[in-house]
C-alpha cells in the first residue's frame, strides 16, 4: 500500500443528474441524481474498486470521471489540476490520460473494422502520421497483451470473450493513459479466463505504471485485485477502506449483506445468510435520510432524519451509517458475524 502517494484523480462532492427534460409540448421529466456528493481519491499506482449493485451509479461515476458524462456539481482534479466545469470536448481533452475500458469489449469495437485498423485509429487520432510506426506500435501492443500480432487482420467477431478483453486493453493502452477505468473487466468470462485477465491487468499495471479504478460487483475479484474498496449504494459511497480491513470488518449493513450474499466454494452452507429485502428504492424518489433504511436489518426510525456522512472507523476505513459505532455489537443478534463475511475460504462458526 502506498498510503502517502498523492492522489492522481481527486473527486470532491461530485453529483451527477441524468436525464431531465423541459421539452416543448412534452411532459417535463425531472432529472435523476445518479451520483450524489461523492468524494474519493485515486492514488497513483493503486487499484481502487468501486462496488455496488446494478443501477447504483458506479458506471455513471466512472463515465463522469472520464469526462463523457458532465458533472452537475462538485470538482474533479486530475494530476493536481481542476478538470471539471469544462465544455464536454474540453473536459474530455483535459482527461485524455484517463481511459475507459467497456464492460462489453466486443460491442465496443466497430464490427466492420479489423482489429489492426481499430487499434491504429487511436494513434491516428493522436496524430501519429507514419503508417509504419502505427503498424509497429499496434503489433507491439498486441504482443504485450498476449495476442498474436498477426491477429491485427482479423475482425471482432472472430475473437473469443477473453481475447476481446485483451484487444480492448491493447486499444486503450496504445494511447498511453495513466489511469484506466475498468468497467466489470471480468464479467461474462469463465473462471479460468477471468484469472488470466486479472493476471494480465496486474502485469500491465506494473509494466505501464497504471492506476486502476475498477468497477465491479464481483467481490471475489475485488478481494483479489484491489488495494482499496469503495462501496456504493444509490449514488453515494457508503463505505470505503483498505480491501483487507473492509473485508475483515465490514461496518455498513449493506456491505455485510453484499458479502454474505457472495457465493463461495469453501463454506458452502453460508449461502442461507441474510437475504436483502426488497429492491433498491428508485433514484427518482429516494427516501429522506439514509437511503438504505427500508432494506436495512438494523435500521431505526431515527435513520430517516438525515443522510449519514462518512465517518472514520479505522485508520483508512470510513463508513456512512448512523449506527456504525453500535453495528458491530448488534449484528450478532441478526445472525451475521463480522468474521463470517470474508469472501473466500471463510470458516463458518458452529
Amino acid at each position: 500500500m502506498i498510503a502517502t502517494a498523492p492522489p492522481i484523480v481527486s473527486v470532491r462532492d461530485l453529483s451527477v443528474l441524468l436525464g431531465g427534460r423541459r421539452g416543448f409540448l412534452r411532459k417535463p421529466v425531472p432529472p435523476v441524481a445518479a451520483v450524489k456528493e461523492v468524494s474519493l481519491d485515486l492514488r497513483e499506482g493503486e487499484i481502487l474498486a468501486l462496488v455496488g449493485e446494478s443501477g447504483c451509479g458506479k458506471t455513471t461515476l466512472g463515465r463522469t470521471i472520464l469526462g463523457l458524462q458532465r458533472e452537475s456539481a462538485g470538482e474533479i482534479q486530475f494530476d493536481g489540476a481542476a478538470v471539471s466545469g469544462l465544455r464536454p470536448d474540453a473536459a474530455r481533452a483535459a482527461r485524455r490520460d484517463i481511459q475507459y475500458v467497456h464492460q462489453d469489449a466486443g460491442a465496443a469495437l466497430d464490427p466492420w473494422w479489423s482489429i489492426g485498423r481499430t487499434l491504429a485509429e487511436g494513434l491516428v487520432i493522436r496524430g501519429v502520421r507514419n503508417a509504419a510506426e502505427r503498424r509497429d506500435r499496434v503489433a507491439e501492443m498486441l504482443a504485450a497483451v498476449g495476442l498474436d500480432p498477426a491477429s491485427a487482420r482479423r475482425y471482432p467477431h472472430e475473437f473469443s470473450g477473453g481475447q476481446l478483453r485483451r484487444v480492448a486493453l491493447a486499444r486503450i493502452l496504445l494511447l498511453r493513459p495513466r489511469v484506466l477505468i475498468l468497467d466489470e473487466p471480468t464479467s461474462g468470462l469463465d473462471m479460468s479466463v477471468q484469472a488470466t485477465v486479472l493476471n494480465l491487468l496486474l502485469e500491465l499495471r506494473e509494466r505501464f505504471g497504471l492506476t486502476y479504478l475498477f468497477i465491479s460487483h464481483d467481490l471475489s475479484v475485488v478481494a483479489r485485485l484491489s488495494d482499496r474498496v469503495a462501496i456504493m449504494y444509490l449514488g453515494r459511497i457508503v463505505e470505503t477502506g483498505a480491501t483487507k480491513a473492509l473485508f475483515d470488518r465490514p461496518a455498513h449493513p449493506y456491505t455485510r449483506i453484499l458479502m454474505a450474499a457472495a457465493p463461495r466454494l469453501a463454506g458452502r452452507q453460508a449461502a442461507e445468510a441474510l437475504p436483502v429485502r426488497g429492491d433498491p428504492p428508485s433514484p427518482t424518489a429516494a427516501p429522506p435520510g439514509c437511503a438504505f433504511l427500508d432494506r436495512c436489518p438494523i435500521g431505526e426510525p431515527g435513520c430517516a432524519r438525515r443522510v449519514p456522512q462518512l465517518i472514520a472507523v479505522g485508520s483508512e476505513h470510513r463508513v456512512a451509517c448512523h449506527l456504525a459505532s453500535r453495528a458491530a455489537n448488534d449484528w450478532a443478534s441478526y445472525g451475521v458475524f463480522a468474521g463470517q463475511t470474508a469472501p473466500v475460504g471463510a470458516a463458518r462458526h458452529g
Binding site: 463523457l68 467497456h102 465496443a108 466497430d110
Partner: peptide, 8 residues
C-alpha cells in the same frame, strides 16, 4: 461511445 472515449 468507445470512439468518443478514445477522442474521435
Amino acid at each position: 461511445d468507445a470512439l468518443r472515449g478514445v477522442g474521435a
